[in-house]
Write a protein that binds this DNA or RNA. Structure first.
Lengths: 138, 138
DNA sequence: TCAACAGTTTAGAACTATTATAATGTAGAC
DNA sequence: GTCTACATTATAATAGTTCTAAACTGTTGA
């Protein structure tokens, strides 16, 4: 409960009303030193473990989208039947383990900066994302 | 019709029966010097333009998945409500125009090789994909 | 040649992730 | 406290994809 005032400030300062659902979701997503990846379904499970007051699915979607829009979450581009989100919003890339269906951060220091020697007229680069697919070595 | 024997051989040699549906889809996907990106929906539209014999949606899905499995198509990792495929299976990367919702090839020569200085024990790298998101410059 | 079989196609149902709807609830300003 | 705009909610709707089971067809080998 102590840390909640931090989330309340954070929400309010980004123009989001600090509702109890949003604060609870903040606690689950950000009250940890380790960042992690999740799907909406993962988050719903975490919520039901963490609290007795259930949060409706629509609110979970709304909140995740709002947080993504504010830059508190990143969506990871990957071929999947569901969306993956990342609480690590710093610049970094990912391994995707196709056997385990698991996403693993690549520390940005472990990737040489990606140089793109071409541009599209009238467009600016918004992000550069590297996805390294790995599989079991035989 | 002349080129069909080529597709028939290609299909047969990869263990796929050369049915008329698969041959027709080969013609649409590969009978062009330019490679392109498409969604299942795009492909269905191309098919109905190209032929009077309609191919059922399930067959289109089955065929695209079979071709992907055989390496004749690549799926492009991107956050989208639908899957994007690429007839260009050579190593290359993509721009994604978030305003136009459009994928554009980046010639592999225009990207410095991506160096990943870390590995996951027991795993080998299968692919390295770079997605450069761009948006309108203001 | 043609029977038999395994692989393929098909229409439509089922499934799943996500978004929309519209009524109810609530935070914050006055 | 009251009011209003924003949030939450249950549920319906939507859309992409996969499943099902019956009909069809390419291939093999007698």
């Amino acid at each position: 409960m102590l840390n909640n005032s931090h989330y309340i400030d954070k929400l309010r300062s980004s123009g989001l009303r600090p509702t109890k659902q949003r604060i609870k979701i903040c606690e689950i997503l950000f009250n940890t030193d380790k960042t992690f990846h999740f799907t909406i379904n993962d988050l719903v499970k975490k919520i039901s473990k963490a609290t007795n007051d259930k949060i409706s699915l629509a609110t979970v979607y709304n909140t995740v989208h709002a947080f993504k829009k504010k830059g508190y979450l990143k969506e990871i581009p990957i071929n999947s039947d569901q969306s993956y989100f990342d609480t690590n919003t710093s610049h970094h890339h990912h391994f995707y383990d196709e056997n385990q269906k698991d996403l693993i951060d690549i520390d940005d220091a472990d990737v040489e900066p990606v140089k793109i020697n071409t541009r599209i007229p009238g467009k600016k680069i918004k992000s550069v994302e590297v996805l390294v697919k790995v599989e079991d070595a035989e």
